[in-house]
Amino acid sequence: PKTFTVRIVTMDAEMEFNCEMKWKGKDLFDLVCRTLGLRETWFFGLQYTIKDTVAWLKTDKKVLDHDVSKEEPVTFHFLAKFYPENAEEELVQEITQHLFFLQVKKQILDEKIYCPPEASVLLASYAVQAKYGDYDPSVHKRGFLAQEELLPKRVRHPMFPVWGGIATEGPEGITEGRGPAGRGRKPRASAAADGGRSLSNPQNKKGTELLLGVDALGLHIYDPENRLTPKISFPWNEIRNISYSDKEFTIKPLDKKIDVFKFNSSKLRVNKLILQLCIGNHDLFMRRRKADSLEVQQMKAQARE
């Protein structure tokens, strides 16, 4: 059969595949997951960029029917698309934790997700411990972290005594069996940072700029000045319906006494993305409230061993 070349970029690897012309998104996605040895596939997706907006490969649509550049190799980024409610409980396998760790770390360093300075320093110290093990003064000499990128630019301000912070954080807070050491340590980054919210910037009717966040628990509206505490939150079980028409996006609360919330996005494409993220996040929200599948039960048992 006729094929085309696809390049897949993960957080720490690049690979190429020959993809059949007729393959759907799911065929390619499954092949990538098998190659990585990843079983907790439901958090992930294949991302591409179109006109400065990210989009995700649809499982039931042919790869080549997507609005991707047809120049070979066709490139996709393999990334976490949905974040867990509770990273420690839900990210079972080491490979899943590893991919989340790398992705969230990068997003914090690139300031794509906001992480307060104190939390950044704490997370940096965990990252160092994950990579180098427990602090040992005979091995870890002064300056051994100089080449590492560990903190967002904003935090690396000369006036901010970060290195002192890490140095004391190292031997004090991070010894085996204390604090966050051990399993489940890495993915905490997502919980401590922005909770895995995908932020986009819709505008309301008056033209005031707002930020919309979609996460594991619902939809949140933020003032751009404060990305940590939402102005308004719509938990999944308090929403009746979500819809868009062109650039207008509508959230209908279950309680009829609460106003319908409307805003305008910059592009129709953004509304499509938001609705997709809503459906996927809500689907996972519902699944978490049902018994674990046999596959997940088995993985958890293995991880405990």
Binding site: W236, N237, I239, R240, N241, I242, S243, Y244, S245, D246, L254, L268, N271, K272, L275, C278, I279, H282, D283, M286, K290
Partner: peptide
């Protein structure tokens, strides 16, 4: 023409489908 300009997701309806 092909591009759909509307989208809709019934959050409560999805819940009901699941519980059935």
């Amino acid at each position: 023409w092909h591009q759909r300009r509307r989208g809709n997701y019934g959050v409560q309806a999805a819940w009901r489908r699941l519980r059935r």
